[in-house]
Amino acid sequence: MHQMSEDSFDRLPDPLILVIFNSVADIKTLIRCRAVSKRFNSLVPQAETLVLKVDRVISTDSDGSFFLSFLKSIFRSLHHIISPKSLPIQPRPHNSPTQILRGFDRIRNLEIELPGGDLCLEKGAVLKWKAEFGKRLKSCVIMGYRGLGEGEELDFGGDMDGGLKVRVVWTISALIAASARHYLLRELIREHRELERLVLRDRDGEGTVVMDREALRECRDGEGEEEQEEEAVEPGERDKSRTKVPAVQMRMRHEPLLELEGCGVRMGGATLVVVTPIKDGRKTGTEEAGLVCDAFEGMFGEAARTLLKTRTYLLEMNSF
C-alpha cells in the first residue's frame, strides 16, 4: 500500500526535472511551480533556460522614460503571481528584469519578450531589424517595405530618389530602438555572469537584440571603460536611456518593386540596410550575406536574399 500511494513523480531524479523546467522556460509558470512542493521550490532556481514575457506596456508618466516604463510593466505583469513565500525579492526603488530574475541562480539562456515594437512609421510601411551587440553595436540588419500587393497594383516608380531621406530615418529609428534595448540589459548582464545567450525581442517580431557568450563577456569586461567614457561627457550631453551608437557605415539596397516568387507577392519600396561600425572595417560579401541570412525568415528572408544581388549604396554616419 505504501508503494502504491507513493507519488511516481518523486522517483524522477533532479537532473531530469531540471530538463523539464528548462523545456517549460516560461518564468510565470516556473514561479507557480515553486509553490507545488519544497523540492520544486529548491529546483526551480536552478533552471538554466528562461523566457520572460511582458504582458503590457504602461504609458509613460512625468519622467517620460521608456526605460522606467518598461521596467514597471515587467514588475506589474508578474506581481499577481509573486508572493514573499514563493519568490522572496527585496523591494527596490525601480523594479527591473534583474530583480525578477534574482530568484534564479544559473541562467545560461535568457529570452525577454516585449509586447510590441517601438517604431512609428508611415501608414503601410513595415520594418524589421536584428542587432547584435557586445559592449557596443556589432551589426544591425534592417529590412523594410512600403506596401504589399499582387499583379500590377503596386508602382512606386523612382521611389529610391525621393525616399532616401525616409530610409535613413528608418535606419536611425531602428538603431535608437536597438541601443535603448541594449542599455536596459546592462544590470542584468552584470549580475548573471553565467549567461551564455541573451535575446530581447518584441511579440510583433519588429526588432531583436542578440548577445552571445563572447559578446556578453565583452560587455562585462568593458564596464569600467564605459563608466570612464560617461564621466568624460558633459552632463547635459548624456543620453542615459540608451547605449551610444558608434560611427557606422550603411550598405543600403533598394528595389521600387520587388517580385517574390516564393510567396507570389510584390513588395513595393523594398529596402535592405546592413549597418556595421566603421572601425571594424568593411564586411566581405560572404560576411554580409551571413548577417542577412541569419536575420530574417519567410517573406522577409526571401526579400533580403534577393536584394543582396542588387546595386549597393554606401553611406556613413557619425556616432550619436
Rank of each mutant, 00 (worst) to 15 (best):
L148I: 14
R201F: 07
R197F: 02
D55Q: 08
G149E: 12
E231Q: 13
E316H: 05
E226L: 10
K130P: 00
D118L: 11
R167D: 13
A289I: 02
F296S: 02
G236Q: 09
R201V: 07
V36E: 11
C33Y: 15
G147M: 13
L260D: 15
T284W: 00
N22L: 06
I107W: 05
D155K: 07
D14G: 07
L121H: 01
R193T: 12
M160R: 11
P246L: 08
V292Y: 04
E191Y: 08
R39G: 10
V141K: 01
A295R: 03
F66C: 00
G149W: 15
G147I: 07
R266Q: 08
G264A: 02
S241E: 15
S23P: 00
A178H: 03
L195T: 01
M250P: 00
F104C: 03
G269N: 04
P91K: 00
I176Y: 08
D118I: 01
D14C: 12
K309I: 05
M250Y: 00
V36P: 11
L110M: 08
L188E: 06
V141L: 08
R56E: 15
P15D: 10
E194W: 06
V199W: 02
K244Q: 14
G205Q: 10
R106T: 00
L272M: 11
K28M: 07
L12R: 01
V166A: 15
T60Q: 15
V245G: 03
F156G: 05
R201D: 02
T286I: 11
L291Y: 13
Q90A: 14
E225P: 07
D202S: 02
W170K: 01
T286K: 07
S319P: 06
L127R: 03
L18N: 10
E122Q: 14
E287C: 08
F66D: 01
I112H: 02
M252W: 00
R102Q: 14
D202H: 04
T171N: 12
S96I: 01
F40T: 02
G298I: 01
M211W: 06
A131G: 10
Y145F: 13
D7G: 05
R11H: 13
V245C: 13
M299I: 15
D212C: 01
R190P: 01
